[in-house]
Simulated assay, not measured.
Amino acid sequence: MNNNRNSKIETLKRRGRRKHLMNELSYMTLPENAFLDIEENQLFCQKVFTFLQSREEKVQIHGNHYREHIEKSEQVLKEMVKKVKITPTQGRLLFFRDHEIEALLVNVGGSV
């Protein structure tokens, strides 16, 4: 019974953190169901990291400070976008938070 109560408390905390993230991103137009269920989110993130680990050509982005990290990340993303033949309308953006990683659904290609 105590386990069930703790699970409910953690779920409520997670919902609160998700609501806070949505408030931080209020400048963006997000799809209605931007979040996966908590269990689905965890499985999705595990699949993403498994895929990334399996890749032979890995890219590491290093900078002297956070602004340089951002600039280098933008440069790598721009290079990757040039290789995309068909732009999807939506994609998952991973947000690394203190307690978890959220795979948030975002609009792509001018509708953001």
Rank of each mutant, 00 (worst) to 15 (best):
M1I: 07
N2E: 13
N3H: 10
N4A: 08
R5M: 05
S7N: 10
K8N: 06
I9F: 08
E10A: 14
T11H: 00
L12D: 02
K13I: 12
K13F: 03
R14K: 15
R15P: 06
G16A: 10
R17W: 10
R18M: 09
K19W: 03
K19L: 02
H20K: 07
L21E: 04
M22S: 10
N23Y: 14
N23M: 15
N23I: 13
E24P: 08
E24N: 13
L25C: 12
S26M: 14
Y27M: 10
M28C: 15
T29R: 15
L30H: 11
L30G: 14
L30M: 12
E32H: 13
N33C: 09
A34S: 13
L36T: 14
L36R: 15
L36S: 12
D37S: 07
D37T: 05
N41L: 07
L43S: 13
F44R: 06
F44E: 05
F44H: 07
Q46K: 13
K47F: 05
K47C: 04
K47R: 06
V48T: 14
F49T: 00
F49H: 05
F51E: 11
S54V: 07
S54L: 05
R55T: 09
E56G: 09
E57G: 00
V59W: 00
Q60G: 06
Q60M: 06
I61D: 09
I61A: 11
I61P: 01
I61L: 09
H62D: 00
N64V: 11
Y66W: 03
Y66Q: 02
Y66E: 05
Y66P: 04
R67Q: 00
H69Y: 03
K72Q: 02
K72A: 04
E74R: 03
E74Q: 00
Q75L: 14
Q75Y: 10
V76L: 06
K78G: 11
M80F: 11
M80I: 12
M80P: 06
V81I: 15
V81T: 13
K83Q: 15
K85F: 14
K85L: 11
I86E: 03
I86D: 04
T87H: 08
T87R: 12
T89Y: 09
G91P: 00
R92S: 09
R92N: 09
L94P: 01
F95Q: 04
F95I: 06
F95C: 00
F96S: 12
F96Y: 13
F96E: 09
R97K: 10
H99Y: 10
H99E: 15
E100A: 01
A103S: 06
A103V: 02
L104E: 03
L104T: 05
L105E: 03
L105V: 06
